[in-house]
């Protein structure tokens, strides 16, 4: 696998391979890069922020409660696309629990007053 290290502006081009059960990172110039590379190979995680539609118009911004498996990003976004909110929410409130079986929740990042257009 090839990727770019994001630990500093250097942006080292990393090549990550598994040999005999050991994950090897090449191209890094520091230990942080190695750790990043291993993580990206073994268990890459991402936060997702997105918009949920509100019945009658408008959107609510949400985020995942924490980073979750990158492979599930698409499923989370798909699930978010199907949501139609029909009540008010406070920032910080859980809007969708365990979204798409990812183990993380979608949390409101702003207040939504239902019935009031943005």
């Amino acid at each position: 696998m090839e990727t770019t290290c994001i630990m500093c502006p250097m942006g080292c081009a990393l090549t990550i391979e598994e040999q005999d059960g050991v994950v090897k990172v090449r191209g890094n110039t520091c230990p942080r890069g190695e750790k990043y590379g291993v993580n990206e190979y073994v268990d890459p995680k991402r936060m997702v922020t997105t918009l949920l539609k509100v019945k009658g118009g408008g959107v609510l911004s949400v985020k995942t409660s924490e980073p979750f498996r990158k492979a599930q990003v698409s499923a989370v976004l798909q699930a978010a696309a199907k949501v139609l909110l029909d009540r008010s929410y406070k920032a910080g409130e859980v809007v969708v629990k365990d979204v798409a079986g990812s183990g993380v929740d979608l949390i409101a990042t702003a207040d939504l007053i239902f019935g009031e257009k943005a």
Partner: peptide, 10 residues
């Protein structure tokens, strides 16, 4: 369009 209109697989 509205956001998520015709949302398809990424």
């Amino acid at each position: 369009y509205e956001v998520k209109d015709g949302y398809e697989t990424l």
